[in-house]
Amino acid sequence: MEDRPGRVQRQSLSDELAQRVRRLIQQRDLQPGDRLPSILRLARDFGVAPPTVREALRKLEMLGVVDIRHGLGVFVGSDSDPLLVRNPFEGAPGARMLLDLVDARISIEPTCVALAAENATPAQLAALGALLDRAEEALPAAEAALNEANLGFHREIARASGNLVLHQLLDALGTAMRQEQRIVNHTRPLRERFHAEHLAILRALEQRDPAQAVERMRTHLEGVRQALLTAGSPDINPT
């Protein structure tokens, strides 16, 4: 029997609500990528305030149960029993760690984009295009909206690869990647350059050209690495 919406009674509202939303996904047999009701609708159905819903959804996102796409809505995540989860106590990474992060991405993301060139659905390609449209609107200033759109672009490519572990891995690196975005997008020329590279990657995906997609992704990430080095920090030693 389906767990029908009703007022949550326990003291830890967000934890209880997270469990209720998870059961709702299972009982309605919702699949990865299916849209959940809006935050306001969930708040009304479960008799809680919208901030409580947001807190519960953030907890579920850490587990991969839901995927919060800013400006688009909340969707069922790729895995309700994830292999990898984000560290909820993770702080801002140091410069040395950021450089190691980009080196790891250079090893991982070309594989993601090659698989995405073969496996991405038309809906996923459209979602990538929508993210780049949002990024273009935010180019004039280094706003959080630009960083989120750029991060979403890379995460969506990992999702489109069809490999759950690669997708979860990019999700788990989210906090560190946000810090990286804030550093490398500090000037308008860099923002425009990286946006153009994202567009080129998308064109390769639309053309179903894995080799071109890999080359463009690797070039892009090597540029990000160089931007981090150029930003300068005593924690980064390229030798």
Score class of each variant (00 low, 15 high):
1 M>W: 09
2 E>S: 14
4 R>Q: 08
6 G>E: 13
8 V>F: 02
15 D>P: 02
16 E>D: 11
21 V>M: 10
26 Q>A: 14
32 P>A: 08
33 G>P: 04
34 D>I: 11
36 L>I: 07
36 L>C: 10
37 P>I: 07
38 S>H: 06
38 S>D: 10
42 L>R: 00
43 A>D: 08
43 A>S: 14
44 R>S: 06
46 F>L: 10
50 P>R: 13
51 P>T: 07
51 P>R: 07
51 P>E: 03
53 V>N: 06
55 E>C: 08
66 V>R: 08
71 G>L: 11
75 F>G: 05
77 G>K: 02
77 G>C: 12
78 S>M: 12
79 D>C: 11
85 V>E: 14
85 V>F: 13
85 V>L: 15
89 F>S: 15
98 L>Y: 03
100 D>W: 10
102 V>C: 07
104 A>V: 13
106 I>K: 15
107 S>F: 13
108 I>F: 01
110 P>H: 12
115 L>I: 04
125 L>V: 05
126 A>S: 13
130 A>D: 06
132 L>W: 04
134 R>F: 08
137 E>A: 10
137 E>W: 05
138 A>K: 10
140 P>W: 12
140 P>A: 07
141 A>M: 04
142 A>E: 00
149 A>H: 03
152 G>E: 02
152 G>L: 04
153 F>N: 07
153 F>P: 01
154 H>R: 07
161 S>L: 08
162 G>W: 05
164 L>A: 14
168 Q>G: 14
171 D>A: 05
172 A>P: 08
174 G>F: 11
176 A>F: 07
178 R>N: 14
179 Q>P: 03
180 E>I: 03
186 H>S: 14
188 R>S: 09
189 P>R: 13
196 A>P: 03
197 E>I: 03
200 A>S: 09
202 L>W: 04
203 R>H: 12
208 R>A: 15
208 R>C: 10
211 A>V: 14
212 Q>G: 13
213 A>L: 01
214 V>R: 15
214 V>P: 09
215 E>Y: 09
217 M>R: 03
220 H>P: 05
220 H>R: 05
221 L>P: 04
221 L>G: 04
224 V>E: 03
224 V>D: 00
227 A>C: 04
228 L>D: 00
230 T>N: 11
236 I>N: 03
236 I>Q: 03
